[in-house]
Design a protein around this nucleic acid. Structure first.
Lengths: 237, 237, 237, 237
DNA sequence: TATGAATGAGTCTTCATTCAT
DNA sequence: TATGAATGAAGACTCATTCAT
């Protein structure tokens, strides 16, 4: 049942009979993330959610007043996790170019190692302001830093930000749809660095250098065995 | 607010009684595009569609067996229009760099001049393989051409393609959400050319040169004369 | 199926295939009135309503946007019918004392001849402003008239109005609960006339004189055969 | 807003640990009375009740097997209180006309001084036989007495009883809805005495004379000391 | 073909009641 | 006894689809 979605300290909670409430809430959010990932954000049905979380439908309403509140809570949670995961790896990196490259690549690599999580994040990105803002903030800081460091040459920061965000999300989506490519992460990172005005050799070098050795995040093997199959037949509801 | 989606001068159509059927079908599709644009693909409700198209709900089922069939037909139509509009503007441009730049910019400019259409296309892009394939085909040809012409230096064509597509769609979405920027089109085009390995000065020059004087929108009567029957060979379903 | 609840001209409608819509709406309202009468206003359940009206539950929503709208519509309808029935019989009576007496008695007699209707009106009286206002208006006019005619001697018209209304509604309720009394109508009318300051002999005479020969209202026999049994076990929902 | 329902000085209660049970039960009933008064009898929800009583929802089921049992207990309690309050004020009054007038006025005055309690009683009156019976018994005795004293001239005692009860309850409801009038109590009492056949001058004099100086509300400790067990013989269920 | 009322399966939501702690 | 999370039956509401006219 544990998955990389579970917050880090959840093992402690699971051992005790206490904190039942927190556990159920977490179970609901995790189940929601799985459903997001498999069927898309707009497909979340409360019956399915309850079943997947192993509770009865009424239980959902002990934690969320309405369906929308569930969606929102999941958004917050994903945004939170996103922020943690990405900032985690770029901690300690001083060079803005490297920070950006590492961020892009790490996120793409999540598309392979934890497709559930990545799929949910990617899917949610279009629908939730919260997660967009978080990405935007992280990115903007690094862009500003890089400009100050004289490494980025950008005419319009907002356009640049949008470019990086949508390209990265797009890459994740492509990978999840089976269009993976060898070195997708470094290829894309290199191109995006070029777009930001980084010199070609530097872009190539930084985009292809080894990633820091930090663990991506708990990420148990269970993430891999889950297929992201079930092709959506219907677009709408 | 002007939109090429709007049916052509209706007097012309009314003169021929026997085109009623085709007209109703077209009215439904156009109404659907409006709804796509305003509320998102997954929000299409058949009652609202009928109302918007000025027919009664039962009438829909004279043209489509099921809701899914409506969605599919709209997808085809949008893909079709997209294809026409884009190929239209790059007709006659020999230089691959220019072709790509013009394509990107023209599409972004639609976000301003015909937001309904652009919004629908952008929204559909995430959900429908058909339209993705069309973009892919157009783009791939130009990329290959540019490589042959020695102007693009790309490691992975598929990655490059995904980059351009998602960045452009992302730009449209941003604009539709009110996050417009002056020179969004040329700024983004320039960055993307850089990403493709075009030299900085050339990228800047081509991305900022005046666009060809072609009208953005094909004449309205083309909406009708384009045969619905013409089977299209697409990669997607 | 027809009942005194049906509006007068409904027979005409029922003969034609046209006006299906109006017929269904009327069927819903009539069914609601029956339920009101049997189970009380707060017990109206949409499933039961649909079943009783012989339509499927979804059909209700073709006529009313929400449960509350059903309640309101029934309130309007009952208030309308109330107004018609009562004003009908007092038409042409010039003397205010007589008008009031006839109104009180007629309404009480409805408690016997059309218990469904009367029960619904009585039950609704506590919950709906609309019907209260209508009663109030009818009554107030007659009180003012009687005062002008020098027959009523009242200190406070509003108190008097409340007295008459609640006493009459209370009588209906008592009758519907099986606590009927011979001459309930004239006994109560006489007491209320006394309360309004009418002289004893006049009160007695007017309260006991024969009622005008007008038919109460369509009132088919089907109204009588329906028992108002099913004692409410539960108070709340 | 002062209310005799409010539990007595809680310090006294806290000194005795062994009365916890009785206190919780009483807290629940008092909370229920507040809810009755504010939202109507049929709106009592067990979650809200628990919250208002300051206990957790499960606790209710330590005192009542079912929601209906709660409603019933509240009914008993209110009827009990009603009986005490009314008999309290008319104690020592020999004249039946005065007894009736005082009863009516006192009850109406509760609508102002203790609207919570009065509202609950009035609301319950329509739904609960118990409280109706208590009123009936009190009233009937006085009516019989008044007839024996030659002061009431009534054709039908039951009709008269119903008239007084419903008129008084109606008055309370009107006041609670904000339709208060100066001298509502004496105005109504006077009219009702007239209805009972009392001569005009006497009715006016008695209905308007000063009320006895008794406190409206029995001492708070009575809330506790009144045995819950005392079986009451009532007509109603 | 067009209409629009009717349908009913499917969803969300509420709330009295149960039960492990 | 007290707690409060969990339960699930039940009710309101939606909407794609059918069908008589």
């Amino acid at each position: 049942m544990t998955s990389s979605i579970t917050s880090p300290n959840s093992e402690i909670q699971l051992t005790r009979g206490h904190k039942k409430k927190a556990r159920t809430r977490q179970a609901l959010i995790e189940a929601a993330i799985h459903i997001y990932s498999e069927k898309g954000v707009s497909e979340l049905q409360l019956n399915g959610l309850a079943e997947r979380a192993g509770v009865s439908n009424g239980t959902i309403y002990n934690y969320f007043k309405t369906r929308d509140e569930v969606l929102h809570a999941v958004g917050i949670e994903l945004a939170d996790q996103f922020s943690q995961r990405i900032t985690h790896v770029s901690q300690g990196i001083e060079n803005a170019v490297e920070r950006v490259a590492v961020g892009i690549r790490m996120f793409i690599l999540q598309g392979r190692s934890d497709p559930t999580w990545a799929g949910a994040v990617a899917g949610l990105f279009q629908h939730d302001q919260t997660i967009q803002s978080i990405v935007a903030n992280n990115l903007l800081n690094d862009l500003v830093l890089g400009i100050k460091q004289g490494q980025f040459h950008i005419k319009n920061k907002l356009v640049a930000m949008g470019l990086i965000a949508s390209a990265t999300i797009g890459a994740i989506s492509a990978i999840l749809e089976g269009l993976d490519q060898a070195d997708y992460d470094s290829s894309l990172a290199e191109m995006l660095l070029l777009a930001l005005g980084v010199r070609a050799e530097q872009a190539s070098q930084i985009a292809n250098q080894a990633l820091p050795e930090k663990k991506l995040e708990p990420g148990p093997e269970s993430n891999v065995k889950r297929g992201r199959g079930r092709p959506r037949k219907t677009i709408g509801r």
